[in-house]
Amino acid sequence: MMNEYMVHIVDDDNAIRESLSLLMKSEGIQATTYATAEDFLSQYHPTESQCLLLDIRMPGMSGLELIEELKKRNISIPVIFITGHGDISMAVQAMRAGATDFIEKPFDSDYLIRRTRDCLQECLCLSHSNELKQKMNERLSRLTKRERQVMDLLVDGKQNKTIAYELNISVRTVELHRAKVMEKLSAHSLSDVVRTSILSS
């Protein structure tokens, strides 16, 4: 039943931990909270279906370092990163490190719950992931060469200004390309763009 599911929440901010735990509870999902990555590692027991909600910035062992550590220990667990708003470079790093997804603060609760459930249903997660990948690739193929360039630079965490400079075009043109990219990828935010870009590759 539900008890087989377990969400591990690792965040150094007490309020975030407690509120996430409460949100999971409201959905009938069992959650355990940890203030540090080290706490999680020391208390971790493999269970059938679990998922890790992980703050990317923490004193001591950071979220990214924890992922590396889990890989070393051969612990396979889907990870959703919690990142700060606009922290694109961190999000990209997280995805490249093997995170299933990332979610920006402040959270879209519905999205978080949906993704958590996806992760908890691992098999589904995998197939879903393939399906998703296909969808993303299909969307990406709609982009023009220039739009693709702009998107890559956006995913690198570059500002519009920098992109304009690097591509030798005006900022206004970058903005136009950017809007087009968002539209073609059905993205609501830059994080959606990053997600599409990384999941497709």
Binding site: L22, S26, G84, H85, K105, P106, F107, S109
Partner: peptide
């Protein structure tokens, strides 16, 4: 500072969503 301010705001947002669900 924006990040710091984001922490309580994020918590508020989650708490209120959880409330709604309850």
């Amino acid at each position: 500072i924006a990040h710091e301010l984001n922490q309580p705001l994020a918590a508020i947002s989650i708490y209120s969503d959880a409330c709604k669900r309850f």
